[in-house]
Computed example of a mutant assay.
Amino acid sequence: MQEQPRILGLDIGDRRIGLAISDPFGTLAQPLLTLVRSSLRHDLKSIGRVLRKHAITEIVAGNPLYMSGDLSPQAQKAQAFAEAVRAEFGLPLHLWDERLTTTEAHRQLDTMGHEKIGRKGIIDQVAAVLILQAFLDHRRLAHEGYATESV
């Protein structure tokens, strides 16, 4: 199996941004870190360091739509931040529907027996992993001819 360029997954929140990274073969998403937000300038600088350190070539950002598929206020904020990232670094950036991602992240941590107290630092990473993994799976299935929608 040939190594693939790395993809960064982002779970963008008001206070924190969860980051996940694809494995060298582009098949598995792995948690990376959680950035505590301070200012747009500082947040972009931190993301830039991650992009350079891991030779990231593509980014997937969660798009928190309402269950109806309509644009939520949080989705507007996430899209604005994602556009700032795209403008700053010039990398391909995909918005990925992340409905129920945080709920699923909590469910997975419950299953693993992780205490509810102290999850703030990890829940965003788990959500970023779920976002990125869904994107990687969809891309693989599309490549194999199983997925009908384009990414």
Rank of each mutant, 00 (worst) to 15 (best):
Q74A: 14
F89G: 07
G62I: 06
P64D: 12
G62V: 04
Y66N: 10
H94R: 10
G48E: 07
A142G: 14
K53H: 13
M67D: 05
K116C: 04
R6L: 13
G145D: 00
S39T: 15
I131D: 06
T101P: 01
Q76D: 07
L91C: 02
T111K: 07
L51R: 12
W96G: 02
G121P: 06
T101W: 01
D110E: 09
A105L: 10
H42D: 09
L136N: 02
G69A: 15
A20M: 11
L28G: 06
K77W: 05
T57H: 15
A78R: 05
S38Q: 15
K77R: 14
A147N: 11
H138R: 15
T27Q: 15
R107Q: 13
T57G: 14
R140L: 13
L95T: 06
G113V: 03
G48R: 00
P31Y: 14
R15V: 11
H42N: 09
L141S: 11
T111Y: 06
P92M: 01
L51P: 09
A80K: 06
D43H: 00
N63C: 12
L44E: 03
I7H: 04
G9D: 11
S22D: 09
A134N: 12
V60G: 05
L136R: 10
I117P: 00
G18D: 01
E144R: 05
T57C: 14
P24S: 12
T102M: 06
G13I: 04
L10Q: 05
S38T: 15
V60N: 05
G26H: 14
F25P: 06
D23A: 12
P92C: 11
R49G: 15
L10W: 01
Q2C: 08
F135Q: 01
R15N: 03
E149M: 11
H106K: 02
F25R: 13
P64I: 09
Q133R: 06
E58T: 09
A127F: 05
A87G: 14
V126D: 03
D43T: 09
L10G: 01
L44R: 07
A128Q: 08
R52E: 14
K53P: 00
A75W: 04
D11S: 02
A80R: 12
I12D: 01
A84F: 06
A142K: 13
T111G: 13
G118R: 07
I12E: 00
L51A: 10
A87M: 05
S72A: 11
L132A: 03
L71R: 08
E115D: 10
Q133L: 01
D11I: 13
R107W: 02
D70V: 03
Y66H: 15
F135M: 04
S72K: 03
E144V: 01
V129R: 03
R6P: 01
L132Y: 07
P64L: 02
R140G: 13
K120E: 08
A128D: 01
W96C: 09
R119H: 09
V50G: 08
R52Y: 03
L71T: 15
G9P: 11
A80T: 14
Q108F: 02
S39N: 09
R37N: 02
P73F: 10
A142Q: 13
R49Q: 15
A55R: 12
R86D: 06
